[in-house]
């Protein structure tokens, strides 16, 4: 068990005074993205299109949950909280995952299209955060990026494979892009407290620039497949809305993942 004293002398240290709330917002966004995506993707465990892919998909889901756990633990060190309490004991409205992650997993094409959009955006975000002036975050992000490199390869391979086969696979990718594509920028949309984080270098690169970098990276890939990202949903770029107002798919997910723990939140599970 980590004590309050050991935490105070550990990761929380080194943050400029008064910056805990803003840093907590950033960590919550990172953690909730991976947590909710990990939950959605783990639904494929046991039912993926074939056994080899099933095993791969479970690994991806576990990686995301592992990353989420690490972010929650870092957040817990700032707030003297408990990672499980942060992850589980919040109302659905308090979650700060991006709109992109809010969609249900859908079919295999939607899962893979969403994964690719998320992984490419996340890669841009993590590249920048590796240079955070707050060392505990920079160090964690370096570790996370090692695993995310494999996710990128997996998602890109599937997107290309599906998009290049005329007929059902391509049609399904286009449908998925139309549905989730408008929400994709929400992963990189500036956080409401971004200015504070930029001033101190905790977040070294502004969201607007991250969005440009991401577009520069994915546009050629999409063009090569004769695809295009639809116009962004206005809420996906709005700091006040990109990570709130979650829809019915997330409510259903939340109800499910709270169902056991919610029986008794004081008990040990």
């Amino acid at each position: 068990m980590t004590t309050r004293a050991s935490r105070a002398g550990g990761t929380g240290a080194g943050l400029p005074p008064g910056l805990e709330p803003a840093t907590a917002e950033l960590l919550l966004a990172l953690a909730d993205d991976d947590f909710v995506l990990g939950f959605a993707d783990s639904e494929w465990t046991g039912i993926a299109p074939h056994l080899e892919e099933d095993v791969a998909m479970s690994s991806l889901a576990q990686d995301e949950l592992g990353h989420a756990s690490a972010y929650y633990a870092l957040l817990a060190s700032l707030t003297d909280g408990d990672p499980d309490r942060i992850a589980y004991d919040r109302p659905a409205e308090a979650f700060r995952h991006a709109r992109l992650v809010d969609h249900g997993r859908g079919d295999w094409a939607r899962t893979m299209t969403r994964r690719w959009l998320y992984d490419t955006a996340n890669a841009v975000r993590l590249e920048a955060l590796a240079g955070s002036t707050w060392r505990p975050l920079g160090e964690l992000v370096v570790k996370v990026r090692r695993e995310e490199a494999y996710h990128l390869l997996h998602g890109a391979a599937w997107l290309e494979r599906l998009a290049r086969i005329e007929g059902e696979p391509r049609r399904r990718v286009i449908e998925a892009l139309e549905l989730v594509g408008p929400d994709a920028p929400s992963v990189l949309a500036p956080l409401p407290i971004e200015a504070l984080l930029l001033d101190t270098g905790i977040q070294p690169v502004p969201g607007a620039e991250l969005l440009e970098r991401w577009a520069a990276r994915i546009t050629p890939v999409l063009e090569g497949l004769d695809l295009a990202l639809p116009e962004p949903h206005p809420a996906a770029l709005d700091p006040a809305r990109a990570r709130s107002g979650h829809g019915p798919a997330f409510s259903a997910l939340w109800t499910e993942f709270e169902s056991v723990r919610g029986l008794d939140r004081e008990a040990t599970w």
Binding site: F39, S42, E43, T45, G46, I47, L51, D54, V55, S58, S59, A61, Q62, L65, G66, A68, S69, Y72, P83, D84, A87, Y88, L253, E256, F257, S259, V260, R261, W269
Partner: peptide, 24 residues
């Protein structure tokens, strides 16, 4: 598999997903 989504802590959820992955 029905309980992956309902696992009550982060550690349990990871352990259960890993176990089911082993079985697949």
């Amino acid at each position: 598999r029905d309980w992956i989504m309902r696992a009550p802590t982060l550690r349990r959820k990871l352990a259960l997903t890993a176990k089911i992955q082993d079985e697949v």
